[in-house]
Write a protein that binds this DNA or RNA. Sequence first.
DNA 1: GCCCAGGAGTGTG
DNA 2: CACACTCATGGG
Length: 287
Amino acid sequence: MRARMKLAMNIEPLDLDQTLGCGQTFRWHRSADGCWTGPLDGQIIRLSARGTNIEVDAHPGGPGVRALVASHLRAEDDVPKIQRALARDPVLRRGLPHVKGLRIVKMDEWECLVSFVLATYANIPRISGMIDTISERYGSPIGDGVNAFPRHSQLSKASSAELARCGLGYRANYLRELCDEIDDHAIKQMKRLPFERLREKLKELPGVGDKVADCVSLFGFGRLEAFPIDVWMERALARLYRKKGTYRELREFAASKFGQYAGYAQEYLYFNERLNAGNGACVFSNE
DNA sequence: GCCCAGGAGTGTG
DNA sequence: CACACTCATGGG
């Protein structure tokens, strides 16, 4: 019987389904009863909504669990204030009531970097599969048959041939080279860089271009001004703003329109565009 | 079987 | 700088 701990937290607003299920992060799983379970910094965390509170079930638990969850869900963000600022844009204003509890998450920088390098040109179920595989093979067991995401030192032991057998496709080589070109210390140094310099530094890494650099800046390094643009976002910008162009042009468009909260705007639009493709239930429109 | 995927790297115009 | 082509493969 593993050690186990329960506690209640108040992080508002928060919609677990929207926040953990929208493709920002890949290791949370929803069970039929609506609980979300995932590995976080060596803990297995289960989250469930209890009115305006969330119940946190952690094992092994410990004094750091509350801070861990608060950090991951960015409890410090004043989301209503962010949404009031973004509501100056008429397109966002109409849909914001439907995504009140969609928050940006804060991932571990290394995990985020690897995850989004693997995420290139793959769909979300496959990305989850790739990440599960490398976690099973190279991460440390933390209970219930779940492994932590492999640390840099653990993943660095994998040969290129081994990684190729993890179903990563051409991404295996990126990951192998990535391990050689960065380490925990370099990541620690990068945390201090201003956004644009961080972005340029990330782009020097193998497998990291504009889009991955923006994802890692946003979800890993917590830079809310980052605005990742993938195929879904290109569609959203074309459909809702009649805006097309190169990555640079779209990025500058977003920066001028959404400013310091571009990352939140991106996640709202991304969430909506995928809904739109799925069942037509889009919540943002330009009409 | 076909199509597409939270793109990046490389070479060319 | 902008575009075209290639990369390897699982999930819908």
